[in-house]
Design a protein around this nucleic acid. Sequence first.
RNA 1: GGCGCCUUGGCCGAGUGGUUAGGCAGCGGCCUGCAAAGCCGUUUACAGCGGUUCGAAUCCGCUAGGCGCCUCCA
Length: 420
Amino acid sequence: MRLFDTYSKSLVELDPNQAVRMYVCGPTVYARAHVGNARPFVFGMWLRSWLRTQGWDATLVHNITDVNDKIYDAAPGGSAELAEQATAWYVEDTRDLGLGMPDVMPRVTDVIPQIVAFIGSLVEAGHAYPVNGDVYFRVASFPEYGRLSGNRPDQMEDLEPNPLKEDPRDFALWKANKPGEDTAWDSPWGRGRPGWHIECSAMAEECFGPAFEIHGGGLDLVFPHHENELAQSRALGHPFARIWAHNGMLRFTGEKMSKSVGNIATLRETIDEWGRETLLVFFLTGHWRKPIDFSNETMAQAAAQAESFRNVFRGASEADGDWEAFAAALDDDFNTPEALALMHGWRDHELLRRALGVFGLESLAERAEAPAEVVALAEQRVAARVARDFEVADRLRGEIEAAGWEMRDATGGYTLVPKR
RNA sequence: GGCGCCUUGGCCGAGUGGUUAGGCAGCGGCCUGCAAAGCCGUUUACAGCGGUUCGAAUCCGCUAGGCGCCUCCA
């Protein structure tokens, strides 16, 4: 199994003798998550699922950022309540994806002591310095800074100078409490709260220790977020993540949805409108590292693909399918478009169900039971057809369709399928 | 301005030097009382220009277009 690693810009093989522990950056909870937020979640859950299928000992940690400027801005005076509410939304919406949940979902507010201790170590080692109740990371003390994102320190000059910082590139580890910020904790540097980046170093190491296999998250987090995490941990000599896996962005095209960029499709709305299966198939159609366009057209195509899988299970199973090829596609940088293409050729129910199961789509194998009244209409129609009374037969099919079902005639019987 | 990514047939999307990927949609056919599903067939694509090579969608260069990040966006 190999994955593309942002740090080395190359495919890196997972160590087969080691447990795979992965940390995927989760959302800042200040509003209902949008579809794009689901991508790293889905990627993490699928990867864990596939690794386990392949016999690995895989663990996924997915954090919740519940202290942040955005939360303060969104709910002046009530940030803790909003964070609580939005966390519940996120858990609910991602759970409805039907992929199970990460092994651990730590929150920033649960690890404040660890964060304070982490910052203390950095200050002690000379990699950070306190100023007026803030604490900043001393970028100059970490020569490797910029390596992950490819940004060269000398090219990041035109930052607005901050009189408190030694160097404009330095970033906050701890921020002194300010008016309007209604949550704060005590620390050796005064009351305040953690900066954005330190939390992930603290949470990842709290869960996994100083070294783990994979760190994931959106491509937009490479800089500054992950660059800073890496600097904080490696400055202390911790290996931190071995592989950095960044998923591509979800783009909104086609429709005029992007009027105000914040107000687009939420995960909740998308699941309600298209169903979880269609959304998952949609994610399957694009490679995890590439951008993917979310539109009515691409979603409709995903829905059609989901339906074609359901049809396979409505027919007879035939022994075919090449699991090895499927596995090879996923083992090679988790190439789901390729795996998906392979699955489309399969008629083997058992094999297909197993493959779909990797992605939480085994439900596509389930046949829906038509309600008794629809079955009654179908039986009447069978009788009408036997009597060759096609006018009645056609009328009955219309009634069956009106009830939301489609009747497919077959030699010696029929199949009732939910109308799509 | 800096760093990086992308550009494949109507749409989505594999493919990393030489055997028509696949899906969706369309069209034609088989099947069907009519349908649906399924099966068969289907005008053979690789942004443009130039280079390397016996041979390039695949390697190199340039051009055009699109995108992400550049201190708190997954």
